[in-house]
């Protein structure tokens, strides 16, 4: 069921303690800052967060981590020059990290949305990130079994939504948005513009509205 809501607070209101939350974005591109701020304000804690990174600077996801609201990060690249809040929690043993090669992260998210129970991939074979995982030689190449990553909620950013919840994105801000929208039970989208059904060319829709539950316009 699709809802257009008036505020980011309303958009994240149902997020419960202990949820797995996917957050879109690569660097600042496509990061739904306003939804993350609302998640901060709504008080939900004990979260597992799926994002490419683990927060930067003193905003967004970094603040959620600083406040101790994230018990586990699933990401590919937590360490950055300005990831001090994650660094501190990790070194103190106060946050769990599941480190996943970026392409495996993306494909595991995609698999969840597509109803795939797992897949074999050459990425990571023979490395410490494949330790303990099932492997096979397929077509002469060592491959590692990877499982889907499901989420209770996805928070993503798109450029425009139409009245049916169809989405289009902008440039490299698309990144994880489309696959996270499909992988979560409940997908919340912040957009810059909402147009009537028919206002987006059906040939150009990137995320069909079937994957979308709540839309909020953010100025």
């Amino acid at each position: 069921m699709l809802n257009f809501v008036d505020s980011v607070g309303e958009a994240v209101a149902g997020i419960e303690d202990g949820s797995t939350v996917m957050i879109g974005g690569f660097g600042n591109a496509g990061q739904p800052f306003e939804l993350i701020d609302a998640l901060m304000d709504c008080g939900a804690t004990d979260l597992t967060v799926v994002n490419n990174n683990a927060g930067q600077g003193d905003q967004g996801l970094a603040l959620l981590i600083k406040e101790g609201r994230v018990k586990k990060m699933i990401c590919s690249f937590p360490r950055q020059s300005d990831s001090w809040h994650f660094d501190e929690k990790y070194k103190a043993g106060e946050i769990e990290l599941e480190l996943v090669p970026q392409g495996n992260l993306a494909e595991r998210i995609r698999a969840a949305g597509a109803g795939i129970g797992g897949f074999f991939t050459p990425t990571g074979y023979g490395t410490m990130l494949a330790e303990g995982k099932e492997t096979r030689i397929i077509d002469g190449r060592g491959q590692v079994f990877e499982t889907p990553i499901h989420a209770d909620v996805a928070l993503i950013k798109a450029l425009k939504a139409d009245g049916k919840g169809n989405l289009v994105y902008r440039k490299t801000a698309r990144n994880f948005g489309p696959i996270m929208a499909a992988a979560a039970k409940h997908t919340v989208v912040q957009v810059s513009e909402i147009v009537a059904a028919g206002g987006l060319d059906p040939e150009n829709i990137v995320t069909p509205g079937i994957y979308v539950n709540s839309i909020v316009k953010v100025a």
Partner: peptide, 12 residues
């Protein structure tokens, strides 16, 4: 702090 990004995907 381990961080892999796309390195393994690029390599393979």
């Amino acid at each position: 702090i381990p961080a892999v990004g796309g390195a393994m995907d690029l390599a393979t």
